[in-house]
């Protein structure tokens, strides 16, 4: 029983150590979702500047303090603003990020659909004139080729 307790204690200690020393992987996991504070558009986990190293250490410390990934990111956003994350937190900006492209896609589809709606009934007529135009086009091409050859 004693030994069991001792080993359990050891296990707990290990667990405690692990949480006090958040692993590099855990830090990267958070850093991947953030962006470098100084150089724009470089993800935090890939950035090698001193400021980024500092931030990663802060993430490690906050992880060790038992904070969740989201809580850590939120704390950075509060202090540094929306540009440290890849998706804006500000509700208006977030809506604009997501809604506008969707709107644009819907609009493009609508224009496409309108084009389809206008598939006129005049298919046969179109086909007839198509044939005529086709002949005309071939004739014109031949003519142009002849003119070119004579130059």
């Amino acid at each position: 029983m004693k030994r069991l307790l001792a080993s359990l204690g050891l296990l707990l200690l290990c667990a405690g150590l692990a949480s006090a020393q958040a692993s590099d992987n855990a830090v990267n996991q958070v850093a991947q979702r953030m962006y470098c504070p100084v150089c724009e558009n470089i993800p935090l986990d890939e950035c090698l500047t001193i400021a980024c190293q500092e931030w990663k250490e802060e993430i490690r410390a906050q992880l060790a303090a038992g904070k969740t990934e989201q809580a850590i990111i939120d704390s950075f956003v509060v202090r540094f603003g929306d540009h440290v994350v890849g998706v804006p937190v500000d509700p208006l900006l977030r809506a604009m990020t997501i809604v506008l492209p969707l709107l644009a896609t819907a609009l493009a589809l609508a224009v496409g659909a309108l084009t389809f709606r206008r598939f006129a009934a005049g298919e046969t007529q179109a086909a007839a004139s198509a044939d005529h135009e086709h002949r005309e086009a071939t004739y014109r091409q031949r003519l142009e080729a002849d003119v070119r050859a004579r130059r």
Binding site: E40, N41, H83, V84, V85, T97, I98
Partner: peptide, 10 residues
């Protein structure tokens, strides 16, 4: 007046 980053996720 807000600088933002649009990342790969978006």
């Amino acid at each position: 007046g807000k600088e933002i980053t649009i990342g790969a996720q978006t």
